[in-house]
Nucleic acid binder design. Structure first.
Lengths: 212, 212
DNA sequence: GCGCTTTTTGTCTGTGACTGACATTACATT
DNA sequence: AATGTAATGTCAGTCACAGACAAAAAGCGC
């Protein structure tokens, strides 16, 4: 039932309950976001629904927004896995592009909440698009690490993995943004994003300036 | 004295006072951010220092963060101007790169608060980097409009201006991020950002994957 | 099972961003 | 000066979040 969780083989009762509560909070929050919208859902509501105090909620999630972060992290995980499975001789950004394409099937099956949910959430309140941007920083760092690992360089000294991750997210976010603006169907999302990625060479290139 | 303001030839007394108060709030806020940090500065403090109620502060700035947005908008204006002055036959991203280079001199002279300030602000609390990301959405849209105008396409139908703006900010932000991490001098900022922009073709290219 | 330590949770309290409602003041117009 | 309109102040309220401390619930040796 639980939408997320790495399902460790469990340690003591303590850790089990902790993980359980964590997942309960996450799932409940996402469900409430879906039902009433992000803003309209208070942290007290979430806590109450799960049966804990608001204070406890904040002990599991430093901020309300972190709920969204974790949800995205779940999605990113699929992307990372997909990236690792791409042939090593593919240049990084092409591999990312293809990984994005590969992962979509898995995401679709992953979370019902995400499927119809993220779509509606984004359309309901565009502020989430802005809120979402804030996390790109975190997500980029992780993606950069995976890219660096893949290429075999040190992300601390080589700026290219960071830049590649940034460009990738820039393109994908532009795609998401366009998709929201177009009010398109959920299944169109990947296509729109891939289009942006495929457009990168042209946008970067020199043959784009003199025309009407 | 005033750091910002388009200095209209003034209409009635009303509008003059309004603009005056707006600038006073902006300047005071930035000064306080610089002195005590962003978090430590309360909206009440800002309002009190200017001599108005907190409620009035929020009537001028929908959120505390909007102070930062407006400050950035001021900077962006220089970038837009610089971009418009670049030769028309330069491809968009190269023109952006050069515009960034061009604008720096003007920015340096523009605001004392920005000069030593933004640097310290970013280093003091890295959360601002994340906060800052949120605004890229807004800034990107505006930049995309300028790019579209320059190239002579409709930004509503052609996705390339949006993508170009997104990629540009992605690179610049990666540069800023690296600069903050390196704890470098303020004057190094433009160089670091330009480096990222110059690195774009390589990162996009195919000749980057097989090496140790 | 029974104390004892450690972790986790609840409760209380407080701060600070932000908002709606409404009275009040200040400019504008005639 | 009279009156309408826009700006401001005041007040009360919501909500995200944080510190402090006590209560409850593991874990652990006996």
């Amino acid at each position: 039932m639980s939408a997320t969780s790495t399902e460790a083989p469990v340690g003591g009762l303590r850790e089990r309950k902790k993980a359980q509560l964590h997942d309960a909070l996450l799932d409940t929050a996402l469900r409430l976001f879906h039902e009433h919208g992000y803003q309209a859902t208070t942290t007290e509501e979430i806590a109450a629904r799960v049966g804990v105090s608001q204070r406890t909620f904040f002990r599991y999630f430093p901020a309300k927004e972190d709920i969204l972060l974790e949800a995205l992290e779940g999605v990113d995980q699929y992307l990372f896995d997909a990236l690792r499975e791409r042939p090593a001789d593919e240049p990084p950004l092409l591999a990312l592009r293809n990984a994005l394409s590969d992962q979509w099937d898995r995401v679709e099956r992953a979370s019902m909440i995400l499927r119809g949910g993220a779509a509606k959430l984004m359309k309901q309140n565009p502020e989430l698009m802005a809120t979402h941007m804030r996390y790109c920083h975190v997500r980029q760092k992780k993606l950069a690490a995976v890219v660096a690992e893949r290429v075999g360089v040190d992300p601390a000294t080589d700026p290219r993995p960071d830049l590649a991750a940034a460009v990738f997210f820039a393109a994908v976010n532009t795609g998401v943004s366009a998709w929201v603006a177009a009010d398109a169907d959920f299944d169109d999302l990947p296509r729109v994003c891939l289009e942006q990625l495929d457009l990168l060479p042209e946008v970067l290139g020199d043959d784009w300036c003199a025309q009407g």
